[in-house]
C-alpha cells in the first residue's frame, strides 16, 4: 500500500529531488521564526476568578513564566496568547469573544481550570458558560481546580510545541498549515 502523495505546502518538502535548496531555506526560516515566536509568547493579562491567583503565582518568582520568554501584556492587540483563567459567565463570555477578536493572528488560547474547560463546579448555574470552547477555539486545556503553577507551565510548553511544529512561512490567514 502506497502512501498518498503530499499536496499543498507539504509537497515542497517531498523528497522528489526537486527544489532541494529552497526547501532547506524554507525549513531554516521556519525553524528560526518558530524559535523566535515560541520563546516570546506574550499573554494577555486577564483573570476571571481564583485561577487568576494561580496565574499570578505562575508569573511570580516561583513559577517564573518569564524564563520561557512569556510576559504579560495589557492589551489584546499585542498579545499572542489568552489564558482564560476562571469561571466564565455569559456576561463575560461576550467580552472574552471581543478580546479574542481583537488579538492579531497567530493567536493561541489556553483554557485554564475546570470552570473554563467545561463550567466546572458551577456548570449548573444559570449564569455560567459551559466551557470557553463554546465561544473561542481552545489550543490547550489545563485541568485542575485550580491547576498548580507547574500545570500551567506545562500548558505553555505544549503551546510552544505547537508553535514549533507549524510552518509559519506557508501559513495563510485563518488556516494552520
Amino acid at each position: 500500500m502506497t502512501t498518498p502523495l503530499p499536496t499543498g505546502a507539504d509537497a515542497r518538502y517531498a523528497d522528489d529531488g526537486g527544489s532541494v535548496i529552497s526547501t532547506r531555506v524554507d525549513e531554516m526560516v521556519n525553524w528560526l521564526l518558530n524559535w523566535g515566536r515560541s520563546n516570546s509568547i506574550w499573554y494577555l493579562l486577564f483573570g476571571l476568578a481564583c485561577c487568576a491567583i494561580e496565574l499570578m503565582h505562575t508569573g511570580g518568582p516561583r513559577g517564573d513564566l518569564e524564563r520561557f520568554g512569556s510576559a504579560p501584556r495589557p492589551s489584546p492587540r499585542s498579545s499572542d496568547l489568552i489564558i482564560v483563567a476562571g469561571t466564565l459567565t455569559y456576561k463575560m463570555a461576550i467580552r472574552v469573544r471581543r478580546l479574542f477578536d481583537q488579538m492579531s493572528e497567530p493567536r493561541y488560547v489556553i483554557s485554564m481550570g475546570s470552570c473554563s474547560n467545561c463550567g466546572g463546579l458551577f456548570q449548573y448555574a444559570y449564569s455560567v458558560c459551559k466551557g470557553v470552547d463554546q465561544i473561542i477555539p481552545v489550543d490547550v486545556y489545563v485541568p485542575g481546580c485550580p491547576p498548580r503553577p507547574e500545570a500551567l507551565l506545562e500548558g505553555l510548553l505544549r503551546i510552544q510545541d505547537k508553535i514549533k511544529g507549524e510552518k509559519y512561512l506557508q501559513r495563510r490567514y485563518g488556516v494552520a498549515v
Binding site: 461576550i94 444559570y126 459551559k130 463554546q134 465561544i135
Partner: peptide, 20 residues
C-alpha cells in the same frame, strides 16, 4: 428572573449553548 423557583433556563444565550 433566575431565583424564582419556576425559572427555566433558555437553550442558548446569544448563540452560546447553555448545555454541554
Amino acid at each position: 428572573y433566575p431565583l424564582r423557583k419556576d425559572y427555566a433556563e433558555k437553550a442558548d444565550y446569544h448563540g452560546i449553548p447553555t448545555t454541554r
